[in-house]
Amino acid sequence: MQYDDLCDQCEEWMQPYLDRELDDTERAEAEKHLDGCGYCRKRYRFEESLRIFVRQVCSEEMPPELKQKLAALRTPL
């Protein structure tokens, strides 16, 4: 696997690609490159699993009593 100029471009696209913020043309180009480049594909997969992991471990459930406190703030009927 050879790191080349297209890999540079693909690296720049990684964050907006995973954020679904690339335009159609850029996304198609990124995917075309990823199809043929194991080097970039591994790094994209890693980034994606890192994001999923970060989201999972940083997601803390709301305490039930807080929900009750919030409901109590509603305007009385």
Binding site: C58, S59, E60, E61, M62, L66, K67, L70, A71, R74, T75
Partner: peptide, 14 residues
């Protein structure tokens, strides 16, 4: 409005 806002409270809290 209040019901919809409360339904979103779990997501807002996260």
């Amino acid at each position: 409005f209040e019901e919809e806002a409360l339904e979103l409270s779990d997501q807002v809290y996260r």
